[in-house]
């Protein structure tokens, strides 16, 4: 794309996005855990403790973020989600109960998208424009539905480092893809449980400094190449007293570089749309 520039002539764009999965991360992966309060408490920690810490960091640095929220979390923790919205953040769709969409029929997927959009509209007054597939899979059917239901962007795929227009099997979509990468997500580094076992082989929790350095190395690369750095965090993993300091270090580093346009997914989408 010729003449493409990020806003304010910054070298790169940075979106620090939140997946507020709560206990539904565990419930969707291990349905048995509905009777396991200890396991579920890993998720509710995110909403009851981690969330406020993350929101305070955003306020401190005057950052607006995009929160991808399973609609059942928005129903169950309505006041928390209204607070997120009132503090100026974007609310986007992340399924109803964090379903693995590829395992459902097309009709089931459609019902979920419509139902969850309605829940979000009831809280914020408008339908979300963005979607991120719950951790799990999606197929072309899912994209057909996203388009049908009226989403403007999706942030689930991992085949690029900058926004692009969706094209699957030579079918062009209006949806813009804001691609993500596993190595820029706290959950794969930090989530842990003995029983049910996560990760499957119970690999050790990653050293925090390694994670911070990986994120900084990637930031340097994204900055040099003028890309869109989209970080994912979940307050249940990022919101511990120690890890929130890692997040602050990263944000400090990015802000001090003075090279990044820090934005929401909606802003990134709108800016990109000016060029296509």
């Amino acid at each position: 794309m010729k003449n493409f520039k990020w806003k304010n002539n910054k070298k790169c764009a940075v979106a620090i996005t939140v997946n507020l999965n709560g206990e539904y991360f565990w419930l969707s992966m291990f349905p048995d855990s509905k009777n396991k309060p200890k396991t579920l408490s890993l998720g509710t920690f995110g909403i009851n403790v981690g969330l406020e810490r993350v929101l305070n960091v955003f306020d401190e640095y005057d950052i607006k973020s995009t929160f991808f929220i399973p609609a059942v979390v928005a129903e169950k923790y309505e006041n928390k989600v209204i607070d997120i919205f009132k503090r100026g953040h974007e609310i986007a769709n992340h399924g109803y109960a964090h379903e693995n969409l590829a395992l459902l029929t097309k009709q089931e997927q459609k019902d979920i998208l419509i139902k969850s959009n309605n829940v979000i509209k009831n809280l914020t007054g408008s339908f979300p424009i963005g979607f991120r597939a719950p951790e799990g899979e999606m197929t072309k059917e899912t994209f057909d539905l996203l388009e049908e239901v009226g989403f403007l962007y999706d942030s689930s795929l991992m085949d690029d480092n900058r926004p692009y227009c969706m094209n699957i099997d030579d079918k062009l979509y209006d949806i813009v893809q804001l691609p993500i990468q596993w190595q820029m997500y706290d959950l794969p580094y930090f989530a842990f449980n003995y029983s049910p076992a996560f990760p499957a082989g119970q690999g050790r929790i990653a050293p925090y400094t390694d994670v911070l350095n990986n994120w900084i190395h990637e930031y340097e690369g994204y900055k040099n190449k003028g890309l869109a750095y989209i970080l994912q965090i979940d307050p249940q993993t990022m919101g511990t007293p120690g890890r929130i300091l890692i997040l602050k270090k990263l944000i400090d580093y990015i802000i001090k570089s003075n090279d990044a346009w820090i934005c929401t997914c909606e802003e990134m989408y709108s800016h990109y749309k000016n060029y296509v």
């Binding site: 596993w182 794969p188 990760p199 499957a200 082989g201 690999g203 990653a206 390694d210 990986n214 190395h217």
Partner: peptide
């Protein structure tokens, strides 16, 4: 790395680059 389907099978962590 991938969460689902899992890669590697035991889903050990993405290593520190350094």
């Amino acid at each position: 790395y991938n969460l689902f389907p899992a890669e590697p099978v035991g889903q050990s962590r993405i290593s520190g680059y350094d």
